[in-house]
């Protein structure tokens, strides 16, 4: 039996709760996603646990569907970013030479523009739909994954066991998937947690700016945008996403920390 530290247990519990809520949103939510069920900004009550929003929809329902959209977009964007970033990063490390130079300089170029600004520039000409958002966020973020995976792979590539594999005549595919990937996995997985959180922050920021998820869909940043006018009257409906985003971010962080320490200690405690 593996002993799991308390922080990681809390992190795992909260993270999996959020993901379960996201997956089963239609079954958990007490009302329909865009169903108007009451007055504008009703206070908390038995019927509406978090009250209602700016046009009288149940806020808890909006938050639950919001979790679905936010987490789904962030997950897919993270996957896009990791697949593209790590494949290109490993390729650059294994091939070296001009391939490495070309890829690395191109990534430098993209990273010299703040990614939010770049995303805004691209979204000004693209239609704002979920696949486009996922792709734009994933591609822009893959530059960071590229840098990490290239750096890790370059370190591993000079190890004796890689040399041995080369000498017994293994192909590049074998070296990438059987030698580099397993050894680069733990820093990449820990990074994955951080990238996921970053994606959650990005998609909610874009939606808040009106350039992400579009109404009537629910999304955490969009909920803030919809309810922000209530704040000056002392109505805190727009602040719930702050709580959900912060707890999600912290719990994913706790899990990522644990994964990193656990996998490194498995390999003889490379601190």
């Amino acid at each position: 039996m593996i002993r799991i530290p308390l922080a990681a247990v809390i992190g795992l519990f909260l993270t999996s709760t959020y993901f379960l809520v996201a997956i089963f949103a239609p079954y958990i939510a007490p009302y329909g996603m865009a169903e108007i069920v009451g007055d504008v900004w009703e206070p908390m009550s038995i019927e509406h646990w978090l009250g209602t929003d700016n046009i009288g929809r149940d806020l808890l329902t909006r938050m639950i569907y919001g979790a679905r959209t936010t987490i789904a977009v962030a997950t897919f964007a993270t996957l896009v970013s990791f697949v593209i970033g790590s494949v290109l990063g490993f390729t650059a490390a294994v091939f070296g030479g001009w391939v490495d130079q070309a890829l690395s300089r191109f990534v430098d170029l993209i990273m010299s523009i703040p990614s939010l600004i770049f995303a805004l520039v691209v979204l000004s000409v693209m239609p704002v739909t979920l696949p486009v958002l996922i792709l734009v966020m994933g591609l822009l973020d893959s530059t960071r994954v590229y840098r990490l995976s290239r750096a890790v792979a370059v370190d591993i590539y000079v190890m004796d066991y890689v040399e041995a594999a080369k000498l017994r005549g293994e192909g590049r595919g074998w070296i990438i998937f059987r030698e580099l990937l397993p050894n680069a996995l733990s820093p990449l997985v820990a990074e994955m947690g951080l990238r996921f959180i970053f994606m959650v922050l990005t998609i909610s920021t874009l939606s808040f700016l009106g350039l992400g998820v579009q109404p009537p869909n629910a999304e955490w940043g969009l909920i803030v945008k919809e309810n922000k006018d209530g704040i000056v009257y002392g109505i805190g409906a727009a602040l719930w996403p702050a709580l959900s985003i912060a707890t999600l971010a912290i719990s994913v962080n706790l899990v990522a920390d644990w994964v990193l320490t656990r996998t490194t200690s498995l390999k003889g405690g490379r601190e």
Binding site: I197, L201, S204, T205, F208, G221, V224, L239, P241, A242, I245, A246, A249, I250, N253
Partner: peptide, 8 residues
């Protein structure tokens, strides 16, 4: 750090 700027 865990909360986006606009929410803060």
């Amino acid at each position: 750090i865990s909360v986006p700027e606009f929410l803060l």
